[in-house]
Design a protein around this nucleic acid. Sequence first.
DNA 1: GCAATTATGTTTACACTGTCTACACTTGTG
DNA 2: CACAAGTGTAGACAGTGTAAACATAATTGC
Lengths: 205, 205
Amino acid sequence: MTHPKGAQPYHHGDLRNALLLAAEQLLAEQGAASLSLRAVAKRAGVSHAAPYRHFRDRAALLRALAQGGFERLAGAIELAAGNASQNPEQKLVEAGVAYVRQAVERPALTRLMFGGSVMVEDDAAYRQASAAAFEALLKIIGEGVAAGVFRARDPRELALVAWTSMHGMTMLMTAGLLDSNASGNGGIDDQVRSIARNVIYGLSK
Amino acid sequence: MTHPKGAQPYHHGDLRNALLLAAEQLLAEQGAASLSLRAVAKRAGVSHAAPYRHFRDRAALLRALAQGGFERLAGAIELAAGNASQNPEQKLVEAGVAYVRQAVERPALTRLMFGGSVMVEDDAAYRQASAAAFEALLKIIGEGVAAGVFRARDPRELALVAWTSMHGMTMLMTAGLLDSNASGNGGIDDQVRSIARNVIYGLSK
DNA sequence: GCAATTATGTTTACACTGTCTACACTTGTG
DNA sequence: CACAAGTGTAGACAGTGTAAACATAATTGC
């Protein structure tokens, strides 16, 4: 530590995380398209080329951001399923609520995660993070099938149905094509529960 | 027409459409993020500022592209529903197949349409085009409810369920998180049919 | 017919972006 | 304590969106 107090140290100390934090803020403020690496550097109080010591390029930064989002998502699903009752149906519904809620709270991050513009290369950590979210869901379904609550089918098939529904709702909401703020925040949750139950019980008579 | 033959006329004649066409090609080739207005202009054989005579800015071009996508989507749904048998369930399934197929054929356009980065302002034509796609779906469901095939609920509620499922599948596929090319093109259709039927009949026993 | 107006393209210019290279400082290691 | 590796800075470059000034073609009013 040679820097006199009051002056900024030449080395930031934790720039990588500081950049991710700044980037997440800017992402939420103005969306991914207009998120400039230079603005991220400026917000972190660092020169415009400094990020290149921690991320190969802009895409790598965005990928790291998305990866963090998947980790939080998987955590939220597992937490919700754990808190819900033992009833697999209810677990599934609450997992869906957690999924959508998590996404709607961070629409820009969600669109980044699922937008497809990131990740084209097979970033291993990235794929693993997104797979973990699906596995959490798969576990709930598997238990439900074992308990005889859900139809005796390949849990992967049923999990896919649940996932696509919740994911579709998420995407439509973050795209602004669904009233994501219909009658407050509880409104979203109820909307998700309604859809989830309809998926569970089916559309047909 | 003062231009000698062999030379390009000063006025293009149909530049707006030429720009949209060029943009759609570039979109498919390299995605929306790196779609530059200048590249579009170059492909249309025109100077880099010419597009500004037809689109206020880059976003306006993208919005026009997305709007066209919605119109095609609505058309594909209606066509599929019309071709299917009178059975509302089957109509619904085939509408889903059309929806997903249309999207998977143009992944970049689809992500543009539903990516949320476009359209923030209430572009009336845009909203109308996207609403038309939903109305086509609503009609199928309404007929099914009237025929007693689907449960006696608000058709909007049921349509929402169907929409979210199909849309979720679409988004996961175009993001590369689902095997969109699992065993050829028929593979997609079958996957959609499987999910659609599961939604119709429900997950629970 | 033909001038005036409007529509449509071009050129030039500017600020901003991602990224590269050369350099400076700091920190650890022999 | 030298020196190598790691981390941050400064400057440069090509490419971007967009605005302004200008050029040309098409249209309109007489």
